[in-house]
């Protein structure tokens, strides 16, 4: 279990002053992965000092409640430092998970990356 290589779970790109994050994993389910994804996302705010983060869910097919928890914590961290989190490119079946949990009301969710970049 712990012998798994700790590979990078996020692809991070800077577009202007926005940090655009793509997920490497198609399924953000596995607890271990979610822990690592959480740490890597939080370090963007806590260590690298990013303030505008755009999460692109284009690759993602599955999302569990543990992953939603990380997104909520990331959102709080950004709010605390006057930053912003926007989510985009969410597959309809994943959007359903946001609707069921009413998190579509908490997060700023945009359809396309371009629209999301302009929403900051």
């Amino acid at each position: 279990m712990s012998s798994q290589p700790r590979r990078r779970r996020l692809e991070v790109e800077e577009i202007g002053d926005v940090t655009v994050v793509n997920f490497v994993d198609r399924k953000i389910l596995d607890e271990q992965n979610i822990q690592i994804i959480g740490e890597q996302l939080f370090s963007l705010v806590d260590e690298v000092g990013r303030r505008k983060i755009l999460l692109n869910f284009g690759n993602v097919e599955y999302l569990s409640s543990a992953a939603l928890g990380k997104l909520i914590t990331l959102n709080k961290k950004l709010q605390a430092v006057g930053g912003r989190l926007i989510l985009c490119n969410i597959d309809p079946q994943i959007y359903e998970v946001f609707e069921i949990t009413k998190l579509n009301k908490l997060f700023n969710i945009q359809k396309e990356e371009q629209a999301a970049l302009q929403a900051f």
């Binding site: 569990s64 409640s65 543990a66 939603l68 928890g69 990380k70 909520i72 914590t73 959102n75 709080k76 998970v97 069921i100 949990t101 009413k102 998190l103 009301k105 908490l106």
Partner: peptide, 16 residues
């Protein structure tokens, strides 16, 4: 899913 709990990071598994 209650508005005052939306920012709690846990408790969503049961809802799903």
């Amino acid at each position: 899913t209650a508005p005052e709990n939306l920012e709690r990071p846990s408790g969503r598994g049961l809802v799903l």
